[in-house]
Design a binder for these strands. Structure first.
Lengths: 259, 259
DNA sequence: GAGTGGTCTAGACCACCAA
DNA sequence: TGGTGGTCTAGACCACTCC
């Protein structure tokens, strides 16, 4: 019971990549060369290469060969990024500032939709399913590369108190600051982290191929009275992003919140 | 320029799965049946099925067919799970309690190692590379299924003040509570979230196949004086886990922490 | 033993990219 | 134009699972 040939191809190439024989950005030998080297049919070599593709280690491009992926991560500081004193979370400055701070060039595509609440959104916002919500959706780029998407749902009652939420334009001072000015302050957040492989739609939006998962950050903001103001889902390309928090327990109450 | 056959197979089956024709847990028709239905070679059908495998939608098993994966997520409440008043994060009760609270059966495999600090660990703990650290490593199961791994590194100075950290046994009252009792309180945390495909080692430990990413939570705990006490990396199976936080801004200082 | 997926071959032709 | 990956075929034999 020996190791299958295609696994030998995958393991052999993986260890060479790890050893730096093929550094990030380098090209692997062609499939036809590898099939001679490993004395295997081209399809078998392809099967081995495919293992590394789905591991996120290499990416093929037609006509050019297989390239070793680099895995430098852009770090988003969530503590700084979303912060009541700076006051912004979606459309405007905080995100772009954070990107520019890293010496990169930000760009966003933005749209607003009126949507009935899905089961999930309704549960997060504690509203009836099919009640209306405003969706503010944003596709974000860094240096021209699709980076993440952000979808924020606002319940109808927020829209009636803060009508500019429903307008299909950026809110210059930032949505959070705008809401704050109307007395809709977010005092508590409920965050959820998860990961999965992208859906075909996400793969198209974020222009990712096989082997690249997405990192999903879901944040619901509540008033001090515990009413949900908004629910934001940010979907990051997992190969390009990590997110950091700083948490200081010195000022949190001893009991914490019951959920 | 029509859609490739294997994509038609993948898209056709995906939409049937989404529509509930093949609900979670159901088996797909066999490759040989599908190759008749789509009038394609078996290899072509396999290529299409492989797309769905790497999307995490289905899982093959030899001799039994392709099964539609279910995607129920176990939710870990990080606010409750790791908390100074309850006081535990690694070996003992908090994790097991959290699992039992959900009506599931927890189990852990545990080991302790003496390790030179890697570049990454050294940076997080602000110690010299190759200086000694204690690694407390834990592989966690829920209902007998591998669920997550947790690796905590402690710098040498902590070990000299809290020698039981280096003993290859559980610390009954919990490591955090034990450290607290010695005046080594964690007052500030630096968390990082990321995702990627598992390494071959991780795939073996967590028994995951292709198409399942891992969710990585890295937490470094600091004393009130800002000295790093420990660095914990928790690696979750992405198909089984999500993690929630509750954040209350009412008691945090206005400025936040500089990073 | 019958049926399933897993591995592998040898070849064909197409689409894309660079020189 | 020549080399690269992308798609596809038809068939072989193996390993595993369940009856």
């Amino acid at each position: 019971m020996r190791k299958p040939l295609y696994r030998q191809v995958a393991d052999g190439l993986r260890s060479e990549i790890d050893a730096g024989v093929y550094p990030p950005g380098a090209s692997l030998p062609s499939e036809r060369e590898l099939s001679i080297r490993f004395d295997a049919a081209r399809n078998t070599v392809r099967q081995g290469l495919n293992v590394l593709v789905t591991e996120g280690l290499i990416a093929p491009s037609q006509g050019r060969g297989y390239e070793v992926r680099s895995h430098d991560l852009f770090t988003l500081d969530a503590s700084r990024f979303e912060n009541l004193t700076l006051g912004e979370d979606q459309d405007g400055d905080a995100y772009s500032d954070e990107v520019r701070r890293a010496g990169r060039r930000p760009h966003q595509e933005f749209r607003v939709e009126l949507q009935p609440a899905s089961d999930e959104v309704a549960a997060r916002l504690s509203v009836d399913v099919t009640s209306s919500t405003i969706l503010r959706f944003c596709l974000r780029y860094v240096d021209g590369v699709p980076w993440s998407t952000q979808a924020t749902h606002y319940p109808a009652w927020v829209v009636s108190e803060a009508p500019r939420i429903a307008e299909p334009q950026d809110i210059d001072e930032g949505t959070t600051r705008y809401l704050n000015g109307l007395g809709l302050e977010q005092m508590r957040y409920h965050d959820t982290w998860s990961t999965r492989m992208p859906t075909p739609t996400e793969a198209r939006e974020l222009q990712v191929g096989p082997g690249v998962p997405v990192l999903i950050w879901s944040r619901t903001g509540f008033t001090s009275a515990g009413r949900a103001i908004r629910s934001t889902v940010t979907t990051f390309r997992g190969d390009l992003n990590q997110v950091t928090y700083d948490i200081d327990t010195r000022h949190t109450p001893p009991g914490g919140d019951a959920q």
